[in-house]
Write a protein that binds this DNA or RNA. Structure first.
Length: 491
RNA sequence: GGCGGCGUAGCCAAGUGGCUAAGGCAGAGGUCUGCAAAACCUUCAUUCAUCGGUUCAAAUCCGAUCGCCGCCUCCA
């Protein structure tokens, strides 16, 4: 049983799908007028993982994530760059896809663009007009907020509160300052589509309603987005969609917390943001993923170098264990025995725990997708396995094989869902070398030094060996003498 | 001003009524090692912002206070 926190009710609830075995899910994507920043990455990673998790649990998922490709900011950007709004949108959609691929965020089943759903939006607006939920002024169409009795239910405000705090620019043409645009008459030079109200373009909120309707139906299971979309975007979506269809729009509303910088929201307007690609140039994507998943998706998460370094240290540890497991298992074949025949009593609890790992992982994830706890469980596995490995000499070979191969399987099993530690350990450590800019030597140089140092070590010339190590150390390289040779990595 | 959230160790972070307050990073001591590193072992919050209250029992529920943040305007 999956429980999830529903913004609509303010409670953690059991997930009951509209149709047994199926999940329909919509996540608000990005407005494509610039490179996406880490805040966008957080929502994308969280909701991608959530839909992936539903699949793991056997649901047939239909996941929709849209692109808002018509908007004031896109138009402004087009003027700045001297290209058309469509070109701006195309450029940043492509950039977004690249960023997502690097982050290990899969493509959604459907990635609709607003500009490809204008007729659907016009249909919804017509319906709203017919039902008295909207009105036309000079080629603009506005939603009449007072006509929708549940307005404010999602964001838990009432109309009086909103009016009291309204900072909205007063537009005399609107009946109520809270009314919002469904359709905007276009100014000369702006993108425009024909409509019953004259040439214009859709308002922001109507896009998601129309695209949700088209691809998921008038009622669907889950709608997700950043916390900042609760009001007004999602509130308005509900008003439009339910005003139009007369049916409940969405059963579960999920909202992710912000990425903060020094405890402040990362945002365009504050200018305190890092684009995804800037960060990925400094840190491996998997580090960013682990960092993002180490905190529950609804909580704020503070971006800092120290936190990214922690994530990196964690991944090093995961991959070191994976490396040890693979090393032990390589060249060996499964013993033709039953686990219960060879695993000694002392190792039974460990074996049981390892077998249970995917289940323990699911228990954590079932509880509102508690990735932080889930990752904690995997750290437990690392400690247990390392401990076992440290005493491997005293173990029966066939029992060890069974226990460690089961551990590797369990580790890979949860890793696949999390999108973590799925690479080959060798590749991971190799990647770590490449990513680090502090290294001032070439690989050839480093290996030459290591060779010289090992010769010195053979002669037991410790002074010379230490001197070479110091030279490498100053070049940003750290050495480890292992039984099977000397390894290195950037500090 | 209205509405909402948060405050758990040096840092990050789970835990929302009851077993010893997960886990990670950093630190300390030890095993191993030529020395290191890694790994392993031990250690590291009688206490959950503060003060009251409810309860047999509270980090968890209620109230007040302090501090931080978000939304109310485009925002993931």
């Amino acid at each position: 049983m999956i429980k999830l926190f529903n913004t609509l009710t303010g409670k953690k609830e059991e997930f009951v799908p509209l149709h047994p075995g199926k999940v329909t899910m919509y996540a608000c994507g990005v407005t494509v007028y610039d490179y996406s920043h880490l805040g966008h990455a957080r929502g994308a990673v969280a909701f991608d993982l959530i839909q992936r998790y539903f699949r793991r649990k056997g649901f047939a998922v239909k996941y929709v994530r849209n692109f808002t490709d018509v908007d004031d900011k896109i138009i402004n950007r087009a003027h700045e760059e001297g290209i058309t709004p469509a070109e701006v949108a195309r450029k940043y959609i492509e950039a977004y896809q690249t960023d997502m691929r690097r982050l290990g965020v899969g493509k959604a089943d459907i990635e609709p663009k607003a500009t490809e759903h204008i007729p659907e939006m016009i249909e919804v607006i017509k319906g709203l007009l017919a039902k008295g939920h909207a009105y036309v002024v000079d080629g603009d169409v506005y939603y009449r907020v007072s006509s929708f009795k549940d307005y404010g239910r999602l964001s838990k405000r009432n109309l009086d509160d909103l009016k009291a705090g309204a900072r909205v620019e007063v537009d005399d043409r609107k009946i109520d300052p809270l009314d919002f645009a469904l359709w905007k008459a276009s100014k000369p030079g702006e993108p425009a589509w024909e409509s019953p109200w004259g040439p214009g373009r859709p308002g922001w909120h109507i896009e998601c309603s129309a695209m949700g309707f088209k691809h998921l139906g008038e009622t669907f299971d889950i709608h997700a987005g950043g916390k900042d979309l609760v009001f007004p975007h999602h509130e308005n979506e509900i008003a439009q969609s339910e005003g139009y269809s007369g049916k409940p729009f969405v059963h579960y509303w999920l909202h992710n917390g912000f990425v903060n910088i020094n405890a402040e929201k990362m945002s365009k307007s504050l200018g305190n943001f890092f684009t995804i690609r800037e960060i990925l140039d400094q840190y491996d994507a998997e580090i960013v993923r682990l960092f993002l998943l180490s905190t529950h998706y609804r909580s704020p998460i503070d971006f800092s170098d120290a936190n990214l370094k922690d994530a990196r240290a964690g991944l090093d540890r995961f991959y070191r264990m994976k490396e040890s497991l693979k090393k032990f298992l390589s060249g060996k074949t499964p013993p033709p025995v039953k686990p219960e025949e060879v695993i000694e009593a002392a190792a039974r609890p460990l074996y049981e725990k390892i077998l249970n790992l995917p289940h323990a992982f699911e228990e954590a994830m079932d509880d509102d997708f508690n990735t932080a706890f889930a990752i904690g469980i995997v750290y437990d596995l690392v400690r247990d396995v390392n401990k076992y490995l440290a005493e491997i000499d005293q173990k029966r070979e066939d029992a060890a094989y069974i226990i460690l191969s089961t551990a590797l399987e369990a580790f890979n099993n949860v890793g696949e869902t999390l999108g973590l530690f799925v690479r080959d350990p060798e590749e991971w450590f190799q990647e770590g070398r490449r990513m680090d800019s502090k290294v001032t030597m070439s690989v050839e140089q480093i290996e030459e030094y290591i060779g010289l140092r090992n010769e010195a070590r053979q002669r037991k010339d410790w002074a010379e060996a230490d001197r070479i190590r110091k030279v490498l150390d100053e070049g940003g390289i750290e050495l480890f003498d292992r039984p099977d040779g000397t390894a290195w990595k950037p500090k």
